[in-house]
Design a protein around this nucleic acid. Structure first.
Length: 110
DNA sequence: GCGTTGACCCGAA
DNA sequence: CTTCGGGCCAACG
């Protein structure tokens, strides 16, 4: 009806992101086999405000940069949320991104 | 219906 | 290291 299937799937995966963990758009796109690429994930996140629980602050780009921090209203909201969950953020980037990186293809596979 | 933009990713120069 | 180009899809004017 209103939302596309992959939109929901993206929200689903983002919702499943555990606290203190982050993922990136490309990983979600590939996990869902989205040919659209990571861009569609970004657009899906664009409607995240229309969703009940979509921790978009746990979704960052390939380098762990809070690319969408500006869309949270205030640029420091996203960082604060991540730090509140135990994710260290420095210079709008996730510290130990590789450590806090959450891969659905691996975590959900088990 | 076309052109531009968008919270992206990757490869090449 | 930086810069450029291609790709893929959706929404807006």
């Amino acid at each position: 009806m209103e939302q596309r299937d992959y939109f929901e799937e993206v929200y689903e995966v983002v919702r499943l992101i555990p606290k203190g963990r982050v993922t990136n758009y490309g990983t979600i796109a590939r996990y869902l086999s989205l040919r659209a690429g990571a861009r569609m994930v970004g657009w899906a996140m664009n409607g995240c405000h229309n969703r009940p629980d979509v921790p978009a602050h746990r979704v960052v780009n390939s380098v762990g940069v809070l690319s969408g921090k500006h869309f949270f209203g205030e640029p420091d909201v996203m960082q604060r949320l991540l730090e509140s969950e135990g994710v260290q953020v420095k210079n709008d980037k996730v510290v130990d991104f590789k450590k806090v990186f959450w891969d659905p293809a691996v975590e959900l596979a088990l």
